[in-house]
């Protein structure tokens, strides 16, 4: 790796660090129940819930499994399940 002068870093480069491995519980969106309100996406500390068509989807590469999305979903459309189950 060539070190940059003054330790500058490239924009958004934490993307190389896949924090999905931190997860113990995994949020699963029930697409049927989801009303597309975007609350989960707004609150996710990782910014890893994106709009897909009129619904929302989680990028598990970065989801740390904090559970905020599930806790805040107004229609309880997100379930936290033990990773690997």
């Amino acid at each position: 790796m060539k070190l940059s002068i003054g330790a500058m870093a490239e924009p958004g480069s934490t993307r190389t660090n896949k924090t999905g491995s931190w997860r113990t519980f995994k949020p699963i969106i029930n697409v049927e129940a989801c009303i597309g309100c975007g609350t989960c996406s707004m609150f996710c500390p990782e910014g890893t819930i994106c709009k897909v068509a009129d619904k929302y989807a989680i990028d598990y590469d970065y989801c740390k499994g904090c559970g905020i999305c599930a806790h805040e979903c107004p229609v309880k459309a997100i379930e936290m399940v033990l990773e690997g189950e």
Binding site: L3, I5, G6, A7, M8, A9, E10, P11
Partner: peptide, 27 residues
Amino acid sequence: DHYLTPKNPLSFGTIVYPSTYTEFRYM
């Protein structure tokens, strides 16, 4: 060559770990 601008949004003053701190001081 490098300065704070949205045209090239670099990060300045990052935290450097023991793995490269010595090298930055050497530079």
